[in-house]
Amino acid sequence: MSRQQPLEGPGADGDEAIAAAGAGRAEVLTGRPIRVVVAKPGLDGHDRGAKVVARALRDAGMEVIYTGLHQTPEQIVRTAVQEDADAVGLSVLSGAHLGLFRRVLELLVEAGAGDVVVFGGGIIPPDDVATLEALGVGALFTPGASTREIVAWVRQHAALRHG
C-alpha cells in the first residue's frame, strides 16, 4: 500500500472525507502551533541529529514531541495519533531506513492518519532517497542539511495540512 505524496494532500478518499467534514478544519487548526513528533526508530543509538532538529523546530515555535530511542514503527504511529501531530520526523542511522520508513507510512494510513506529513534524516544513500520519496516520504535531510532548511520545509508542509 503506497502513500500519496503529501505535497498533493491526502489521497482521493481522504480528500472527500475532509471535504465532507466541512469547515471546522481551519477553525481548529489555524493559529495553533505546529505539532511534530521527532522519533528514533530502530536499533541505532545516535540521537544527536534528532535532538538538534527537535530543538531547531522548538526554537521556530513548534511543539515538538520527542519519543526517545529504539522506537518501533507501531509506537511512533501511536504517538503521532495520541499527540494529534501534523508531522512525523524520523531519524535513522542504522541502514534500516527503507523498512522503517515504509512501515511507518503504512501504519499511519492504516490508523487513518495518512494526512500526517513524514520527513526524515540520517545516513541515506541517494538511490534510497528516491525510493523513499516515491513511497511518500515528503523530504529527507541528509548530513549537511541546515536546520533552517528543515524548519522551512516542516512549516510549509504542516501548514498545507492545516489547510
Binding site: 472525507a17 466541512g22 471546522g24
Partner: peptide, 11 residues
C-alpha cells in the same frame, strides 16, 4: 485497511 482521515466538526 485504511481508515479515512477524521472530520473536524466537534459533534
Amino acid at each position: 485497511m485504511p481508515i479515512p482521515p477524521l472530520p473536524f466538526d466537534p459533534a
